[in-house]
Design a protein around this nucleic acid. Structure first.
Length: 899
RNA sequence: GGGCGAAUAGCUCAGCGGUUCAGAGCGCCUGCCUUACACGCAGGAAGUCGGGGGUUCGAAUCCCUCUUCGCCCACCA
C-alpha cells in the first residue's frame, strides 16, 4: 500500500493557513506590479475608504469583487495593478477628532487651527491604517507598495495644481448664493452632500396683514415658519388672477413688524398652498433668485450654528434660540396674534447632511465654485460614443440625466482638515489669484497677502485618484504605465460624488484619456428586511467576525456567489450560520476532495497530453470534456463581470461532477489490488484527477484564494516557490472536448439514478446488493453501459448487472430511461406487486399526459408551419422517445399482470 | 412630480436573444458514520414564476395595466 504523500486533517481550518499564505504572497511580492514589465497592464484603483474607517460588509463586497477581477487578470498574464489607499475625508475625520476634543471639554476653536490640525494628524497616524490591515485579512491582493493617502505631499501637489489650472482656465469662480449649510459641521456642502429625505412635516398657513389690498390679510403657506423673520417680500404668480390685485401693495411681516412688498414672479406655483409665497432670499435658493429679480434685501436671520439672530428682525424673546425651538415659539406667537390660519400635515423632502444627518439650512454665503458644464460635456459625448461603459447598463439614463443637468460644484468647506484653498488676496490692492506656492506678498503691488481660510471639498482631491496616485503632475513612469486604468468597482451611491467627477478630471487633465473603460456598480448589502446595513441600525455584520468563525474564503464565497451583477446582497445578521456555512462547507468539500486525490497520487503524474483519448474509459473522457466546459464558461462569465455565474459553474464542476461522479467512479480503479487497476488505467486516472483538480483550483482561486492556494501547492510536481496566485489561467483544450462522451455518460448517470431511485422507493438497505438488468435502446447506450459496467455496479450497489434482457425468474421494479432504455432491479424480497402496479401506472399516466400535449402540438398546423424546422424536428424526436418509454411501461404493466 | 429596479419553492436568489427552464443553496421528509468529507452521501416532497389583459404556433421570459416594496432625481415654498 503506497504511503499517502500528506497527512491532512479531515476538516479544513482556515486559521491555520490564511495568515501564513497571505504573508507568503507578500514576501514573494506577487501583488506588486512592475513598472518595467512588458506585460499588458490591468489597473483597478480602489475607492479609498475614509482614513478613520473600519471595515464593514459593504466595503467587503466592494473589495472582494475587485480582488476577484484583479486575481483573474493577474493569472491571465496581465501586469495587474490594484492601487489601495485612503481618503482624508474632511468632514468625517474632523468630526471624529472634534468629538475626542469635546470629551476633554474643549472645542477646536479652543485649540486653534494649527494645534487642532496637528491633533488630527496624530489621530490619523495612530489609527489610520486599520482598514488597510483589515483588507489583508480578507485576502485583498492590493499593491501595497503603492498605497496612497489623499493628503500625501505628492498628492497634495496634484490637488493644488488642478485648482490653479482650473483657476487659470476661468473655471473656478466666487459665487454669492444660497448654498446648503450644515449648522452642526459648520460648513457649506455641495448639492450631492445634502441628501434629501422624505419627511412628514407640517404646512403652516400664516396670515400677513395687507395695507390697502383687496382684503385685510393674505395667507402664505410655509414649512419653515421661523424663516419668516427673514422675509423681504410676498410673491404671487403674475398669471394668478385671484391675487392680481395684491401686487404692488405692501404686506406687514408679523412679529418682525416690517413692511414688505407684494411682487409678481414666475417662480411661484399658483397651485401650491394659497398661491402666496413668503420670500426669504437669504435662506432659500428660489427666494434668492426672486430677490435678485426684484432687488430685495437679503437679511440673514440665523447664525452659522442655526440660532435666530438679527439686530432688528429677531425680537429679543427669540434671539439665540435654536431654529427648531424658534419654530415652535413663532407658531405660538402667531397663534396668539390670531395670524395662524391652519396647520396641515405635509410630506416633503428635507435635506440632511450626509455626514452628521443634521437638517441642512439653506444659507446665503460666498463660496468657491467649479463650472461643470465644460467638464461634463465631453465626457457625456464619450459615453454616448461607447468609450466607456457602465455596468449594469440600466444606470445609463440616471448618469446621462445628471450629466446633462449638472450644476456648478461648491468646493469650499469651512473646515480645517483638508487641502487649504490656494487663493490669495492682497490686503492692499485687492489683487486675488491662485498660486502653486505660498506667496508672502502681493504679486502686483507687493502688499501683504491673506490666504483663503477654507479647505477644499474632500471629493476635490479624490476625483484625481486615477492619476494623482501615480505621480501626476510629474511625468512618472508609473503614470505612463498605469494610466488609463480599466475597471472601476464601486457602489452606485458615489456615482456622482466620485465616479462622474473622475471621468471629468481624467478627460480634462489627461488629454482626453478617460481613467477607465468600465464602471462596475455593485449592489448594496442589506439585512433580511432589506434595510441597508449600518452602524446606527445595529444590523451590520462585522466581516472580521465572519473570517474568525468561517474563514475568509467563506465570507468571499457568500458575497460573490450571492450577488448577480449589480443586484443587492441580502445577508442575515441574526443568522451567520445560515448565511456563511455554505461557503465554509464548500471550502471543506474542496479540502476533502484534495485530501482524497492527494492521497492517491505518486510523486510524478503523467501530464494530460501523455494520455490517449482513444483508450480512455468513457468516464475519463466525460470529466475531461466537462472540465473544458467549466474553463470556457467560467472564463466567459468573468469577462462579463458575472462573478456569481463563474463561481457557481466551478462549484458544480468540482462538487457535482468531479467529486460526486468522477471520484466515485474511479475509486475501484485506484484501489490497491483491484482487478481493474492495471498500471495504465491507474496512471490515467491519476493524471485525469490531477488535471481536473488543478484546473478547478485555478478557476476558483480568484473567489476563494486561500484554500485553493493551500491545496494547489501540494499537487505533485509543484516546486517550493510556485504560487497559484501567479499561476496561469487555464485555457479550454479543444482536443479534450467530447460531446459524444457527454451524451453517453449522461445515459450512465441516468441509469444509475433510476436504480438508486428504485432502491429507495422500495426501501432496500444501502448495504444490500441487488441484481439488475439494463436493456439498451440504442447501440450507443449499449456501448456506454458496457463500458462503464463497473461504475454502474459500484454506484448502484449491485450484486450483478446483466445486459441480456433475461429476467424471467425474478420479481423486481422497472424504470424506463429518457432514451427508452429499460432498467430492471431484482427485488424479490421487497417487491410488492400491487405497489409496483400503482407506481408504474402512475408513471404511465404522467407520460400519457405529456405525450398527449406533445401530439397536440405536432398536430397543430400553425406550429409545424411557423416554428423553426429545428424545433419541430426536436419535438418529433421527443415524441418518438416518449412513445418508446410508454411502450416499455405498458409492457411491464402487462407482464406484471396489473389490471 | 419624474426615472429606475425588484416581485420565481418556507428563506436567499439564478433563469428573462421564446419552444426538456420550472432551477441552485439553505430549510424540510426518508434512508445511510459506504475507509476524502455527517461542514458528508443517496433518494424525495415542495412553486397556477405578484394580479389582470394582450402579442404569438408557443411567454417567468415580449407589450400594456394594476398592486406591493426599494432606490435615484426634482427650487412647489
Amino acid at each position: 500500500m503506497p504511503q499517502p504523500r500528506f497527512e491532512l486533517p479531515p476538516q479544513y481550518d482556515p486559521r491555520a493557513v490564511e495568515r501564513r499564505l497571505y504573508q507568503r504572497w507578500l514576501d514573494r511580492g506577487v501583488f506588486t506590479a512592475r513598472t518595467e514589465s512588458s506585460r499588458e497592464p490591468y489597473v483597478i484603483v480602489m475607492p479609498p475608504p475614509n482614513i478613520t474607517a473600519i471595515l464593514h460588509t459593504g466595503q467587503g463586497l466592494n473589495v472582494v469583487i475587485q480582488d476577484v477581477l484583479i486575481r483573474f487578470e493577474r493569472m491571465r498574464g496581465r501586469e495587474a495593478e490594484w492601487l489601495p489607499g485612503t481618503d482624508h475625508a474632511g468632514i468625517a475625520t474632523q468630526n471624529v477628532v472634534e468629538r475626542l476634543v469635546a470629551k476633554e471639554g474643549k472645542t477646536r476653536f479652543d485649540l486653534g487651527r494649527e494645534r487642532f490640525v496637528e491633533r488630527v494628524w496624530a489621530f490619523v497616524r495612530e489609527t489610520g491604517n486599520t482598514i488597510l490591515e483589515q483588507l489583508k485579512v480578507i485576502g485583498s491582493s492590493c499593491d501595497w507598495s503603492r498605497t496612497r493617502f489623499t493628503l500625501d505631499d505628492a498628492y497634495s501637489r496634484a490637488v493644488r495644481e488642478v485648482f490653479v489650472r482650473l483657476w487659470e482656465e476661468g473655471l473656478i469662480y466666487r459665487g454669492h448664493r444660497v448654498i446648503h449649510w450644515c449648522p452642526h459641521c459648520l460648513t457649506a456642502l455641495s448639492d450631492e452632500e445634502a441628501e434629501s429625505k422624505d419627511t412628514d412635516g407640517k404646512l403652516y398657513y400664516i396670515r400677513y396683514p395687507v395695507q390697502g389690498g383687496p382684503t385685510p390679510f393674505l395667507t402664505v403657506a410655509t414649512t419653515r415658519p421661523e424663516t419668516l423673520l427673514g422675509d423681504t417680500a410676498v410673491a404671487v404668480n403674475p398669471k394668478d388672477v385671484r391675487h392680481a390685485g395684491f401686487v404692488g401693495n405692501v404686506a406687514r411681516l408679523p412679529i418682525a413688524d416690517l413692511p414688505i412688498p407684494i411682487v409678481a414672479d414666475e417662480a411661484v406655483d399658483p397651485t401650491f398652498g394659497t398661491g402666496f409665497v413668503k420670500v426669504t432670499p437669504a435662506h432659500d435658493a428660489t427666494d434668492f433668485d426672486i430677490g435678485l429679480r426684484h432687488k430685495l434685501e437679503t437679511p440673514l436671520v440665523m447664525t452659522e450654528d442655526g440660532r435666530m439672530e438679527h439686530p432688528t428682525r429677531v425680537p429679543p424673546s427669540l434671539a439665540g434660540l435654536d431654529r427648531f425651538d424658534a419654530r415652535v415659539q413663532i407658531v405660538d406667537l402667531l397663534k396668539e396674534l390670531g395670524l395662524l390660519e391652519k396647520v396641515e400635515p405635509h410630506r416633503h423632502a428635507v435635506r440632511h447632511c450626509y455626514r452628521c444627518d443634521t437638517v441642512v439650512e439653506p444659507r446665503l454665503s460666498d463660496q468657491w465654485f467649479v463650472k461643470m458644464t465644460p467638464l461634463a460635456t465631453p465626457v457625456l459625448a464619450a459615453y454616448r460614443d461607447d468609450r466607456f461603459q457602465i455596468a449594469p447598463e440600466r444606470w445609463r439614463a440616471t448618469f446621462e440625466h445628471w450629466m446633462e443637468n449638472i450644476r456648478d460644484w461648491n468646493i469650499s468647506r469651512q473646515l480645517w482638515w483638508g487641502h487649504r484653498i490656494p487663493v490669495f488676496t492682497c490686503a492692499r490692492c485687492g489683487e486675488q489669484w491662485a498660486d502653486r506656492a505660498d506667496p508672502t506678498q502681493c504679486r502686483t503691488c507687493g502688499g501683504p497677502v491673506v490666504h483663503d481660510p477654507d479647505v477644499l471639498d474632500t471629493w476635490f482631491s479624490s476625483w484625481l485618484w486615477p492619476f494623482a496616485t501615480f505621480g501626476w503632475p510629474e511625468r512618472t513612469a508609473d503614470l505612463a504605465r498605469f494610466y488609463p486604468g480599466h475597471t472601476l468597482v464601486t457602489a452606485p451611491e458615489i456615482l456622482f460624488f466620485w465616479v462622474a467627477r473622475m471621468l471629468m478630471s481624467g478627460y480634462h487633465f489627461m488629454e482626453g484619456r478617460l481613467p477607465f473603460t468600465t464602471v462596475y456598480l455593485h449592489g448594496t448589502v442589506r439585512d433580511t428586511q432589506h434595510r441597508k446595513m449600518s452602524k446606527s441600525l445595529g444590523n451590520g455584520i462585522d466581516p472580521l467576525d465572519v473570517v474568525r468563525l468561517y474563514g475568509a474564503d467563506a465570507l468571499r464565497w457568500t458575497l460573490i456567489a450571492g450577488s448577480s451583477l449589480g443586484a443587492d446582497v441580502i445577508l442575515d445578521p441574526g443568522d451567520l450560520e445560515t448565511t456563511f456555512a455554505p461557503g465554509r462547507n464548500f471550502a471543506n468539500k474542496l479540502w476533502n476532495i484534495g485530501r482524497f486525490i492527494l492521497a492517491q497520487l505518486p510523486e510524478r503524474v503523467q501530464p494530460l497530453d501523455a494520455l490517449d483519448a482513444q483508450h480512455l474509459p468513457l468516464v475519463d473522457r466525460w470529466i475531461l470534456s466537462r472540465a473544458q466546459g467549466a474553463v470556457r464558461e467560467a472564463t466567459a462569465s468573468l469577462e462579463q463581470f458575472r462573478l456569481d455565474e463563474a463561481a457557481k459553474r466551478c462549484f458544480d464542476f468540482v462538487w457535482k461532477e468531479l467529486a460526486d461522479w468522477y471520484v466515485e467512479a474511479v475509486k475501484p480503479r485506484l484501489a490497491p489490488n483491484s482487478a481493474s487497476g492495471d498500471a495504465a488505467s491507474v496512471a490515467a486516472a491519476q493524471a485525469v484527477l490531477t488535471y481536473c483538480f488543478d484546473v478547478a483550483l485555478r478557476l476558483l482561486h480568484p473567489v476563494v484564494p486561500f484554500i485553493t492556494e493551500e491545496l494547489w501547492q501540494k499537487l505533485p510536481g509543484r516546486t517550493a516557490d510556485e504560487l497559484l496566485a501567479v499561476a496561469q489561467w487555464p485555457v479550454a483544450l479543444d482536443a479534450w472536448g467530447d460531446a459524444a462522451a457527454e451524451v453517453q455518460f449522461a445515459l450512465v448517470q441516468d441509469a444509475i439514478a433510476a436504480m438508486r431511485n428504485l432502491r429507495a422507493e422500495y426501501r432496500v438497505s444501502p448495504k444490500a446488493r441487488v441484481g439488475a438488468v439494463l436493456t439498451s435502446k440504442t447501440r450507443e447506450a449499449q456501448r456506454a453501459f458496457e463500458g462503464e459496467r463497473e461504475t454502474i455496479v459500484r454506484l448502484a450497489q449491485l450484486q450483478v448487472l446483466r445486459f441480456d434482457g433475461r429476467r424471467a425468474a425474478d420479481t423486481g421494479a422497472y424504470a424506463v430511461l429518457a432514451d427508452g432504455s429499460e432498467v430492471f432491479v431484482a427485488l424479490s424480497d421487497a417487491i410488492d406487486v400491487q405497489q409496483e402496479c400503482r407506481r408504474l401506472s402512475g408513471e404511465l399516466t404522467r407520460l400519457d399526459q405529456q405525450l398527449a400535449g406533445l401530439i397536440g402540438k405536432l398536430a397543430n398546423q400553425q406550429f409545424v408551419a411557423r416554428a423553426p424546422a429545428e424545433v419541430v424536428a426536436k419535438e418529433r424526436e421527443k415524441e418518438r422517445a416518449w412513445r418508446d418509454q410508454r411502450q416499455g411501461l405498458a409492457d411491464k404493466l402487462r407482464s406484471l399482470g396489473c389490471s
